[in-house]
Every structure is written in structure tokens, then in C-alpha cells.
Computed example of a mutant assay.
Amino acid sequence: MSLEAPPEASAPTTPASAPGAGGPLRMLRGVPHTGLVAVLILVVTYAGLETDSFSTSTNVTNILRQVSVTAVIAAGLTLLMTAGGMDFSMGSNASVTTAVAAQLLAHGTSTAFTVVVSLLLATAVGLVNGAVVTFTHVAPFVATLASATLLDGVALLVLDGQAVSIGTKLFSLGNNSTLGLPHLLIVALVVLASAAVVMRFTVFGRDAYAIGGNEHVARLSGINVTWHKLALYGLTGALSGLAGLMLLSRLGSSSPGTGGLTLQLTAVAAVVIGGTALAGGQGTVIGTVLGVLLLGVVANALNLLQVSSYFQQISVGGVLLVAAMANQLQKASRH
């Protein structure tokens, strides 16, 4: 009897496992955000065919100015959510910043002093949120939602329920352009590029991914989780203040309802649509930019098509729900 084991039969190579199988479609599936880009192209094409004013330079510039404020908030939120955090008070923080800055400017305070005070105030709000979440272990969603409600009330008190105009102050930031690029867009691009560099090339960014992936393991590996959380919430606060100043410069006044939950939900929807994991550990600035553009284009197209503004709220909520479910399904399939 031969003691030699028979040679193992090699598994037949199936077309699915062969190199290059599936052709271009298989290759496209490996490209990040392919589906999001495809949807954005479809929406732009449809809007361009349905209304002639959509593709005009004036309307494109208007879209870029509108999405710039959301993009600044979304950039900070991407960093925070990647680390497993959440801040639902950023829109309300921007509201308070807008109200305080408007009152200061309306009463003759210098623009430079107003900007500094507004940014410091917004940063302090972010740090308070971070301290509550870090040291009391209250769920970020609960803590920041309570903070958002409180801040909305503070904004009403500061404005005394009335609109406050700032005249021509901050006009250049909100309405002028350089080399054809609106100043608001330039600010947003700087913020987005900085966030991308931090997430991709710095220790701080890599630590944020590690904390979001597993906070306990990150702590055991020597990462100062407490300091990182406080820094991230302080950063989101500062960016909220910057977004509030940008919004004030574009509108020329602050009124009850400026910013708030509507702005916040739009930013959250953009970040989630862009692929940032709600549980943390995953996210990209490129995805966030695509999400911001998609929501901005959809809102603008609905306006040009004279669709009721109520449907805009419905569309944002629906997109956020679908994106959250897709996010969860992707996480389950990855596990």
C-alpha cells in the first residue's frame, strides 16, 4: 500500500475570482464614494435639464456660498464622529455666535474684537460639551441635544426675539470674491483641507481613528483619550463660531431661527452620507464634501423648481435616514 497522499486537486478558477473579473463595474465598486458621485451627477443633470437658471454662473456661485457654512460645521463634525463623538449643538452654537456678534456690531463694537469674542465664546461652549461628555459619561447625543436646546433659548434672549442688522460690516466676507471664488468658499476650502491633512497625516488624526475604533484599546495603548476628546469638542465649538460669523456675513443680520437645528441636521446628514461611521473609526473629508454638495444641489434645485420648502425638510430627513441605514448595513457586512 502506498503511503503517499494523493495530490490535492486544485480548485477550478471561477470567473468571479479571476483577476480583472467583472470588468469595469467590479473596478468601480472598489473606488470610494462611487455611488455618491453617481447620484450627484444624476441630480445635477436633471436640474440642468429642468431649469435653465440652474447652470448659470450666478446660481453656481450662490450654491457655493450656501454650502460653505454647512461645510465648515461638517468638517469639524467629521473629525469628532471619526473619534466616536457627536455634537448636536453646533448649529445652535452658530446661532448664539450669530446673535452675539450681531448685537456687538450693531452697538458699534469693532469687527476684529467681535470676531475674537465670538470665536472664544463658541470654543468655550464646545469645551463645556466636551467636559460634560468626558467627565460625566453622559451619552454625547443626550448631552449635546440638551445643550442645543439651551443655546437656542440663549440666542432668543440675546436677540430679544427681534432681527438685528449689522449694516455693511462683514459684507466683504459674505458677498465678495477673489479670482472668481467667493470668500466664504475660500474659508470653507481652507477648513476642509486642514481637516483632511489632520486626519490623514498627523498623530492627532490617527489617534482620533483609534479612539473611534475602540476607546478602551486606545487608552491602553497610551493615547490620552480625555485630552483628545476635549480638544475635539473645543475644535467643533470654534468651527461652529466660524460658521456663525460666515452665516452672519452672508445674511447681513441675525434673527430668531438663524442656524439652529436645521443647519445642524443638514451637516449631520452630509457627514453620514459621506460615509463617516456613526459608531466612529471611519470617515473621510472627501466623502463629507460630496455629501455637502449633494444636499446643497438638491435644496437649490427644489427652490428653482418651485417645490415647497416643506419638502426640503422632508428630503433632508429622508436622505439622513437612508444614509444611516446604509451605514449600519455596511458596518454589519464588514463585520
Results as ranks from 00 to 15, higher is better:
Ser2Leu: 13
Leu3Asp: 09
Leu3Gln: 05
Glu4Val: 09
Ala5Gln: 15
Pro6Leu: 14
Pro6Ser: 13
Glu8Val: 15
Ser10Gln: 14
Thr14Tyr: 11
Pro15Asp: 10
Ala16Lys: 13
Ala16Ile: 14
Ala16Val: 14
Pro19Leu: 15
Gly22Val: 04
Gly22Ile: 03
Gly23Ala: 12
Arg26His: 12
Met27Val: 06
Met27Thr: 13
Met27Trp: 14
Leu28Met: 14
Leu28Asn: 02
Gly30Glu: 14
Gly30Tyr: 12
Val31Ile: 04
Pro32Phe: 06
His33Ser: 02
Thr34Glu: 04
Gly35Lys: 00
Leu36His: 02
Val37Lys: 00
Val37Asp: 00
Val39Asp: 07
Ile41Gly: 11
Val44Asp: 06
Gly48Ser: 15
Ser53Pro: 01
Ser55Gly: 10
Val60Lys: 07
Leu64Ala: 09
Thr78Pro: 06
Leu79Lys: 00
Met81Arg: 07
Gly84Pro: 01
Met86Val: 05
Ser89Arg: 03
Ser92Cys: 12
Ala102Asn: 08
Ala102Ser: 14
His107Glu: 09
His107Lys: 13
Thr109Asn: 11
Ser110Asp: 14
Thr114Phe: 15
Val115Arg: 00
Val116Gln: 11
Val117Leu: 15
Val117Asp: 07
Leu119Gly: 08
Leu127Gly: 05
Val128Ser: 06
Ala131Gly: 10
Val132Ser: 04
Thr134Ser: 13
Phe135Ala: 00
Thr136Ile: 04
His137Tyr: 12
Val142Gln: 07
Ala143His: 06
Asp152Ile: 09
Val154Lys: 02
Leu159Asn: 08
Leu159Asp: 12
Asp160Thr: 13
Gly161Ile: 04
Gly167Val: 10
Leu173Met: 11
Leu173Trp: 05
Asn175Lys: 12
His183Arg: 13
Leu184Met: 07
Leu185Thr: 14
Ile186Met: 11
Val187His: 05
Val187Ile: 11
Ala188His: 05
Ala188Phe: 08
Leu189Asp: 06
Val190Thr: 02
Val191Ala: 02
Val191Leu: 05
Val191Tyr: 05
Ala193Asn: 10
Ala193Lys: 03
Ala196Gly: 12
Val197Thr: 08
Thr202His: 09
Thr202Pro: 03
Asp207Ser: 15
Ala208Ser: 15
Ala210His: 05
Gly212Ser: 01
Asn214Gln: 03
Glu215Arg: 13
His216Ala: 14
Arg219Thr: 05
Leu220Ile: 08
Ile223Ser: 06
Val225Phe: 13
Ala231Thr: 15
Leu232Cys: 01
Thr236Tyr: 07
Gly241Cys: 04
Leu242Arg: 07
Ala243Trp: 08
Leu248Asn: 00
Leu248Cys: 00
Thr258Trp: 01
Gly260Phe: 00
Leu261Ile: 11
Leu263Met: 05
Leu265Ser: 02
Val268Asn: 05
Ala269Gly: 08
Ala269Thr: 10
Val271Phe: 08
Val271Asp: 10
Gly274Cys: 04
Gly275His: 04
Gly281Ile: 03
Gln282Tyr: 08
Thr284Glu: 07
Val285Ala: 06
Gly287Asp: 03
Val289Gln: 01
Val292Ile: 07
Leu293Gln: 00
Gly296Thr: 03
Val297Asp: 06
Val298Tyr: 01
Leu305Pro: 00
Ile314Trp: 00
Ile314Glu: 01
Gly317Cys: 04
Gly318Trp: 10
Ala323Glu: 02
Ala324His: 00
Met325Pro: 01
Ala326Ile: 12
Leu329Lys: 12
Arg334Glu: 08
His335Ile: 13
